[in-house]
Design a protein around this nucleic acid. Structure first.
Lengths: 351, 351
DNA sequence: TTGTATGCGTTATCAC
DNA sequence: GTGATAACGCATACAA
């Protein structure tokens, strides 16, 4: 015999189960289960009422873990994000959570570990918890998490990064368009010496924007621009990268930063060197994160359709849950240039 | 008989269970369980090795849901937060998640619904999923979630809001100290007509800062200041509240906003009215959120010990899990004034 | 419409 | 050390 006295010997309060209700109502547990879940046309009007009354009376609360074990579904979405505090990812997660919870899905949120091994472990842990699927923000290329997703056949949506091999559905900003908008704007102002502070090569957006940068420069008939790589999408990394860029002899007249944070770092460095922005140096960021409209000077940047991104990601995820065999698809989001005051024509001398 | 063909008739890939391994190894499932969990001194060296080998070979992955059902613990912490995208809460959640995952706890993150009824439902849903406990950010007073936490005996930590009735442990900024720092600073600059744009009365920080405002004004021998209430902790609400404040005849010479977002709204409104900040109006925010150092003018504000907050919240939560009967405790975090350029002496005429 | 039987995958107790 | 057994709480196929 096993009365399971293990977990807690003090046995605070049992908490009624379906069996308790069945006993009280003089019916079989199966009937209670059906009644409480409102299975249509399967339980008589009065019995149902009685069962519901008793459930309320006994303070019955269903055990979702037990139900999950039986039905093999948890209704939990795993959201994996590099950094919740990031001003781009935060809003995306917030949008995803809202959309998903409206469909009765809860979100297990985990931050992406650095080491590949830990990433793999994370994905495995998530899979072992039987999550319904994965939403991965800013996955890196060849991410071990993707391998796990494939092995375990987890419905997966990539957000803000495409899968190079088109193995997973994704929702991403159209980075080539972003870059085109920026460069056209700078070219129209008269800039020809344009540099790019790229994001880490490990990130697909980092690579995509860098490639597009070179490509669009050519397309616009501009000379090749210098590219330096920031070690991360942070203000500090941006500043470090800018140091290299701004101390050289042929200083660019305009800098396109891979994201706003990096742009702020560039701004820090320009300030430190006494360079006026935009007088001596034009600066463009990317993402239009909150408050960049209030800094001095208000930052010209590219607005990513964050709301669309989270909406579409959630929608795609739900489709995938409903139809796991759904063909892989990529949804491109159109960016918009937001011209503010950090860009101006180049100084006469340099033009 | 029931082979449970219900969930998925296509039956993609079984996925080995403990029983499969037991069969393959010619031992009892219980032994496999013990071996795989590394229960000390309970299974022979060689049998364990063999079992581990087979587990690897069969690609065994434990089903955490089943284990949770049996052990009655999920190792999932529920983090409830008004808005993940909020520049204060985002970092707090990020810190909590990091600290908790280091202890093998996953975070179910949910955003606080507006309606009390929905809040109650959320808390119930969380409890029904058998989460190990709750971390609630910015709980409102008389929050139905707290009632559920009590009823269901869920280990609960309140973050950035105290529970009025001291029923729950909490980690909060010392708001009285915050206000003291601000008012001393403004008084030292020579301000006497100081107003406060308060947060919603429903929030404990809103109330706490407002009360402290009146109290500290008296303590410093300053005349009572006007208080207007913003409908929410947002830039828009701040602007709306400021409208009321700045159009009146006896305009204050300094405004203390309940948080930075509200302060930005006040700044918007001041700008719209052609008021120079800090020349004609000094402005102080609260929280020192990212980028307020870069806006024009750089905002004088109060820095909340965000990292400490998440660290302590996680630590307190873990203590509570280990010892549910832990006496209720409140951990106060010391704020720091960050003086930047949005504050200056009042204009001569008004001084 | 309701009851019966069984299993989801794991772990704890008890006896050997 | 190991096996046998019995749950954890719920939900379904099937029979009645």
């Amino acid at each position: 015999m096993n009365r399971l006295p293990d977990p807690d010997p003090s046995a605070p309060r049992a908490g009624a189960t379906i069996d308790d209700i069945a006993r009280a109502a003089g019916v079989h547990p199966a009937t209670v289960s059906r009644a409480l879940r409102g299975v249509a046309g399967k339980v008589s009007r009065d019995k149902r009422a009685e069962i519901e009354r008793l459930a309320r009376e006994l303070g019955y609360q269903p055990n979702a873990v037990a139900a999950s074990l039986r039905t093999r579904q948890t209704n939990i979405a795993a959201v994996v994000v590099p950094d919740i505090a990031n001003p781009l990812f935060g809003p995306v997660v917030q949008g995803i959570e809202s959309a998903l919870r409206a469909q009765r899905l809860m979100c297990l949120v985990a931050q992406t570990p650095q080491r590949p091994e830990e990433r793999r472990e994370l994905a495995l842990a998530l899979a072992n918890r039987q999550v319904s699927g994965l939403l991965i923000l800013a996955a890196e290329s060849d991410d071990p998490m993707l391998a796990v997703a494939r092995e375990r056949r987890l419905p997966t949506v990539l957000v803000n990064r495409g899968s190079g091999d088109r193995q997973f559905s994704s929702v991403v900003n159209d980075d080539r368009e972003s870059v085109r908008l920026v460069l056209e704007h700078l070219a129209a102002l008269g800039h020809r010496a344009i540099a790019h502070v790229a994001g880490p090569a490990a990130s697909s957006t980092g690579r995509a924007r860098r490639d597009a940068f070179n490509e669009q420069l050519r397309a616009l008939g501009l000379p090749p621009g210098r590219v330096v790589e920031a070690a991360a999408f942070t203000r500090e990394a941006g500043r470090a990268a800018a140091r290299e860029l701004l101390q050289s002899q042929e200083r660019p007249t305009a800098v396109f930063a891979a994201n706003d944070l990096i742009a702020l770092g560039v701004l820090d460095e320009a300030r430190a060197r006494g360079l006026r922005v935009p007088g001596e140096l034009s600066l463009v960021g990317h993402n239009d994160m909150p408050l960049v409209d209030l800094i001095d000077p208000p930052l010209t940047t590219v607005r990513v359709a964050v709301e669309q991104m989270s909406r579409q990601a959630a929608a795609l995820f739900l489709e995938l849950l409903a139809e796991p065999a759904l063909p892989v698809c990529t949804r491109l989001l159109m960016p918009a240039l937001v011209v503010r005051a950090s860009t101006a024509p180049p100084p006469p001398a340099a033009a």
